[in-house]
Amino acid sequence: MVAVTPPATKKATKTASNNVFDAAKIIVIKVGSSLLVDEDKNAINTSWLAGIASDIARLKSAGKDVVVVSSGAIALGRRLLKITDGKLKLQEKQAAAATGQVLLAHAWMDALGAHQIQTAQILLSPDDTETRRKHLNARTTMMALLGLNAVPVVNENDTVATAEIRFGDNDRLAARVAAMVGADLLVLLSDVDGLYTANPNGSDTATHLGEIAQITPEIMAMAGPANASYASGGMVTKLEAARIATAAGCQMIICNGQSPAPLSRLEAGAKCTIFAAALTPHTARKQWIAGALTPKGTIRIDDGAAKAVRAGRSLLPAGVVAVRGQFERGDLIEIENNAGTVIGHGLSSYGSDDAAAIRGHKSNAIETVLGYRGRDEMIHADNLVISDS
């Protein structure tokens, strides 16, 4: 059975009246090329960008953390490099991305700067989101930026991520970023107002679906390709993004972003499709740590540290009495109590050699021991799962 809210019911055309923005603390907004770039002029749509900047400023004033994942670098770069005809070769895409990214970053900086909001540019490749050590580094950087009240503006590192350019899109990148930062809500702004049972541009019987409870093969079969010549993501990639986001405990919305203030319009009840998440981001991350990875090593902790981690606190080096195995920063490791019983798992902030060197030391001694100022925690509480028994 297809897990959707039936189109004939009152909820068939889903709106944002269920307060998804109100409940969300961290919101990731994905902006497609077809919205940000005027296809006829291959230039930034400055009036539209000013509108969404106002929306973001309003969310920030309400206490929300916002991350933007923005397409558009290749489209802008090909104009600046005067590559106007035909399908781009891979090296031309990379050159266009490198050129257009400068203009794209400045455009976001100016638009958000008008509201006294600081932006930060982050370029990611798939390896940065899928390799645990790089994932941890990127997550730490983005969480630090959010803590400093900045808005990270993320794009693919298209100049080096050749495989991502070939099939790539920022829908899935946005979902990976949402999972990385533990976002509560991912909004994909596009030129469509959600998912239909068939392509609404080619079918008179296509029916809008307001809410998707589960992404089934029947749902995936409803997807269609993108329209704009430089937009690499279609409905297929949006549904794949929904799989990634909802598995990470993040709700996802697909909506039409063409209006001057698309998020305000969405909050006011614009038509959209909401993909529900069964778990919270925190619970989903804890489940991933607990069951989806293979431990690479083990650390033994004293009774005081065991009591602290059971109370939900981070594990500090001072409470570690032994380190076994070879592991890198970001790897999963087991945590044993003094009796040798495994009581939990976590992502290590240090590789095994450095972990062994700082075990038993207070956090303020780490720089003296290692020669650099690392994390205060051996395992941060966000990256730590303790068993019930």
Rank of each mutant, 00 (worst) to 15 (best):
K89T: 14
A107H: 01
V68C: 06
K296Y: 08
N364I: 07
G194H: 08
K286R: 14
G371P: 09
I343K: 04
E156H: 11
R133C: 06
A161R: 04
V321K: 07
G51D: 04
D382N: 14
Q121I: 05
R176D: 11
L81P: 03
I122G: 01
M180L: 15
D204S: 10
A213M: 06
D55N: 12
E328P: 00
L36A: 11
H282C: 01
S229A: 14
T237P: 04
G344N: 04
Q251C: 11
V177L: 11
F275E: 03
S17K: 14
G77F: 03
V177C: 13
W288R: 15
T197N: 09
R324F: 08
N137H: 12
L80S: 12
I29T: 04
R324M: 02
S389L: 05
E336T: 01
T13W: 05
V342G: 08
I212G: 10
R324Y: 05
A57V: 07
Y372S: 13
N337D: 15
V102F: 10
K30Q: 13
V154N: 03
G210N: 13
L80N: 11
A43W: 10
T119Y: 01
E377G: 06
L90A: 10
G168E: 07
A50I: 01
I274W: 10
G346I: 07
P225T: 08
D38Q: 10
E267V: 06
R265P: 00
G351H: 06
Q258W: 05
Q251F: 13
L186M: 14
T99N: 09
S34V: 12
G346E: 01
R265K: 13
L279W: 03
R265Q: 14
I215E: 04
Y372G: 08
P317W: 08
I379T: 07
A268T: 13
L347T: 03
I274T: 10
K87E: 15
